[in-house]
């Protein structure tokens, strides 16, 4: 599948999605199309390789969830994005589509406090269970004091 073919298929199936660039092709979808689009990308576009999932805090514009998937046989590389909206920190989980989303979403929850709905075991992964706050939010200062020996 060429990049042009993939772009046509995306435009047909998901008219609300915006695409830009080639390597990786950036696809921005509304949050309610997040899981259906991932399933479509895996099954129809053959993007079976799950590279990473993370988020970006755009301050007053809210959080954006980013995921990178690849079709390694045909060198198709997609960077999926969705905006959660100001003040929203809930996002549907991709764990039903990609097994690799499990740890990635746990990390994202740990760092940004995003609740992934449908995740089987959403708890902190890198920080301790008693940690307060989510460090990668822009509102979390680098020098936030915390007790020693955590």
């Amino acid at each position: 599948m060429t990049i042009a073919q993939a772009r046509t298929l995306i435009a047909e199936r998901f008219p609300g999605a915006q695409t830009a660039g080639d390597a990786p092709m950036v696809v921005t979808v509304p949050v309610d199309a997040w899981v259906p689009f991932a399933r479509f990308a895996k099954e129809t576009l053959g993007c079976r390789f799950f590279s990473f999932l993370s988020a970006v805090d755009w301050k007053e514009e809210g959080l954006e969830v980013v995921a990178k998937i690849d079709n390694v046989d045909e060198k198709l590389s997609l960077l999926l994005k969705t905006r959660l909206g100001p003040g929203v920190s809930a996002c549907p989980s991709l764990t039903g589509v990609y097994k690799g989303a499990d740890w990635m979403e746990r990390e994202c929850y740990d760092m940004f406090g995003i609740r992934f709905e449908g995740h089987p075991d959403l708890r902190r992964i890198l920080l301790g269970d008693d940690w307060e706050g989510h460090p990668l939010l822009k509102s979390y200062a680098v020098d936030t004091p915390h007790p020693p020996f955590r």
Binding site: R48, F49, F50, F52, V72, D73, Y98, K99, G100
Partner: peptide
């Protein structure tokens, strides 16, 4: 091969599972 890609294995691990990546 399927599991390796879905979890996002890379390097010698994914190539050990038959994926030329």
């Amino acid at each position: 091969r399927e599991l390796a890609q879905e979890v996002g294995l890379s390097g010698p691990l994914v190539r050990g599972s038959g994926v030329n990546y």
